[in-house]
Design a protein around this nucleic acid. Structure first.
Length: 418
DNA sequence: TCTGGGGTCCTAGGACCC
DNA sequence: TCTGGGGTCCTAGGACCC
């Protein structure tokens, strides 16, 4: 048996733990750069605010319904996620952390799984303040579906074991696009064939599914039939690619500012790279204007560059990045976004040396270790490269940011100010 | 003034090899 | 008169997830 534990409205719940005045009110949390609503409290959902609505389009509703707004506070959400996962890891022999707010548990020969689900829910709530929904079933896809049902039906008390219900009725009540693995394109394809519910997808012909939805779609169907096909991945795999990109808080026009931004993104990507003990064989830099401003002249471009030897040394990578941005930058445009991709990572232990280049310098490796440790312990940006710039007027907007309650001493919650 | 960021996997087709 | 079979690697594009 598998359980899926899913935090309810996770970002909103994190904000509420430290700001109880948000309880019972409609609350939305915005994406980076205060772009779109990416988390909504139940009260906000009830007002009909759609997931992903652009912030500027919500101005009227926010005033009218006194909706509380927060910018994304990933320092806070990341730390709260770690706390939730810590609690969960003690509840089952095997666990897969699936996303910042979800984990699969493997409940192999455990009896009384529904009771265990209730205990897990109570413990997470008591120890972290985060409410969760628990779905239990014989496959991961069904467990996901069960947790959705648990979240939607308050009578279930947050826990639903699909084995204790009439499975056909449950599956008939779930729309096909709400099945894990069915997105927009497959919804259209399936609807066109008259398949509208999870039950109909479960009973669809295997050959047709394999042909039209690849082996992944077939796995989904088998999982809906209760046959587990998607294994639990209990050890996190190192990333095969690393991306670091951001939209700008305001349009950027000068090469100088673009270079600052690219240097910052390279720095961040290199940090992630070293964290997983990887080396970059190549790097891509891309830039673009704002496609939503159709009246503006549009330009976007990317450039890729292979390194003579794999590396993770930030100053060298910045030097490449600056050269690359010079090649694709064109004056006269209002740029909205830039980013850096490391598409092919090699493990540090498999470093291929070159006859024509000096071997890696241990002093440089120590320097990077020290920089990473300082930034880890004292907060990101404690040590920066000059190329990243100082003013950084282009950096992202976060107008409604809550304090980093759990990771910065100077922002810790105050219980009673008097 | 105004629309996010970071990932994964699968398939088809072409180049190339013996 | 007549021209196979099997395999790998790479890339682009498309689907999905949170």
């Amino acid at each position: 048996m598998y359980a899926l534990v899913d935090c309810n409205n996770f970002y909103v719940s994190c904000e509420r733990v430290f700001d109880p005045s948000l309880k019972g009110r409609p609350v939305i949390v915005l994406s980076n750069n205060d772009g779109n609503a990416v988390a909504l409290s139940n009260e906000a959902k009830a007002l009909g605010i759609p997931f992903g609505a652009p912030y500027f389009s919500l101005a009227r509703a926010i005033g009218k319904y006194r909706i509380a707004v927060r910018s994304s506070n990933y320092s806070l959400y990341g730390d709260m996620s770690r706390r939730v996962m810590d609690v969960l890891s003690a509840c089952a022999p095997e666990m897969e952390i699936y996303s910042i707010d979800e984990a699969f548990l493997f409940l192999g020969g455990i009896s009384g799984v529904t009771g265990l689900g209730r205990a897990i829910r109570e413990q997470v709530l008591a120890w972290t303040g985060i409410p969760v929904s628990v779905g239990i079933a014989s496959s991961k896809t069904l467990a996901k579906l069960a947790s959705r049902v648990a979240k939607k039906d308050p009578a279930l008390g947050g826990v639903f074991n699909i084995a204790e219900a009439l499975t056909d009725e449950v599956l008939a009540s779930v729309r096909v696009e709400d099945v894990w693995g069915v997105g927009r394109q497959y919804k259209a394809l399936l609807n066109g064939r008259g398949i509208r519910t999870a039950l109909q997808l479960r009973d669809a012909p295997e050959r047709w599914v394999k042909k039209n939805m690849t082996i992944c779609g077939l796995r989904t169907v088998m999982e809906l039939r209760g046959i587990p096909c998607i294994p639990l991945e209990d050890t996190p795999q190192p990333k095969k690619a690393i991306v670091s990109s951001r939209s700008f808080g305001r349009p950027v026009e000068t090469l100088c500012e673009m270079q600052e931004a690219v240097a910052s993104y390279v720095t961040r990507a290199a940090e992630k790279l070293r964290a997983q003990r990887g080396l970059a064989r190549s790097m891509i830099v891309f830039i673009g204007t704002n496609p939503f401003r159709e009246s503006d002249p549009q330009y976007s471009n990317g450039i890729s560059c292979g390194f003579p030897v794999p590396l993770s040394y930030t100053p060298h990578m910045i030097r490449y990045g600056l050269r690359m941005i010079e090649r694709i930058y064109r004056p006269g445009y209002r740029y909205k976004k830039a980013g850096v991709v490391i598409p092919d990572i090699v493990p540090e232990g498999e470093r291929q040396l070159s006859l024509f280049h000096p071997p890696p310098d241990p002093a440089r490796a120590r320097l990077m270790e020290t920089v990473d440790r300082l930034n880890r312990e004292m907060g990101r940006g404690a040590v920066r490269f000059a190329a990243e710039g100082c003013g950084r007027a282009w950096s992202m907007r976060r107008s409604f940011l809550s304090p980093r309650y759990t990771t910065r001493w100077d922002e810790i919650a105050v219980v009673n100010a008097r």
